[in-house]
């Protein structure tokens, strides 16, 4: 679970299209490093903005026995897909249409009074990040600067793992546990967020995450009994 792969926020896919009005002019947007993909709605002939459900970066059975392919099928194929599909429906034709996923998250977080699209946008992002947080060849200690920071801010890698597990286990309800970098302190921190919230809305840079919604681990329990 403690995968050594560190996904940077910029590598995440938010495939989207520039919104084109009837006059064909595209909105000026803050282009980040996301891949741009064009999708056409069948039959309509119009180009529409749309987030895609990106496949996990490895086969669905690649994380066994830690995560069963059955868990993965539901978690990616049902939960993650539903967040993406529902987000696309929610933003269709609104001013959010055409924004990056990160921008939608920040806008709809609305300083702690989330707007309706926040939940789907943030959960779509969180799950994508979660897949990137794991790797079939993962595990073991990181190296380089990250290891130095972990040693500096948590004492040791083992102490960090222990604290990370404790943070995940003590979440009161659904949510996420994160290793994040706090730019204003120039320090690593463990962050627990409820439901769909994530460190982006706090201004931190997420580095790793553990999904502590029950849908993640319940099927593991089932397969263990």
């Amino acid at each position: 679970m403690m995968a050594a792969t560190i996904a940077s926020a910029n590598s995440l896919t938010s495939a989207f299209l520039p919104r084109q009005g009837l006059n064909g002019s595209s909105q000026s947007l803050q282009w980040r490093t996301q891949k741009k993909q064009f999708a056409r709605k069948a039959g309509s002939g119009t180009i529409t903005a749309k987030f895609d459900l990106k496949p996990p970066p490895y086969p669905m059975d690649a994380l066994e026995p830690h995560m069963s392919s059955r868990t993965f099928e539901f978690h990616w194929g049902k939960h993650h897909r539903a967040y993406v599909d529902n987000l696309n429906k929610q933003i269709d034709g609104t001013e959010l249409d055409g924004k990056t996923l990160e921008d939608i998250i920040l806008v709809t977080y609305n300083k702690g009074s989330p707007l309706p699209a926040f939940n789907n946008a943030a959960q779509a992002w969180n799950h994508q990040f979660f897949w990137e947080s794991m790797n079939p060849n993962g595990g073991g200690e990181p190296s380089g600067e990250l290891l130095e920071l972990i040693n500096r801010d948590f004492g040791s890698y083992d102490a960090f793992v222990k604290e990370f597990k404790a943070a995940a286990a003590t979440q009161f309800g659904s949510g996420w546990a994160w290793l994040a970098y706090k730019p204003e302190d120039k320090k690593l921190a463990l962050v627990k967020t409820p439901n769909a919230e994530n460190p982006l809305v706090l201004g931190y840079t997420p580095l790793l995450t553990i999904d502590v919604w029950e849908h993640y681990h319940l099927l593991l329990v089932e397969s263990a009994t």
Partner: peptide, 12 residues
């Protein structure tokens, strides 16, 4: 409506 109340049978 915690997931533990239904997930093993009804999934999502």
């Amino acid at each position: 409506v915690w997931e533990h109340a239904y997930y093993l049978q009804y999934k999502n």
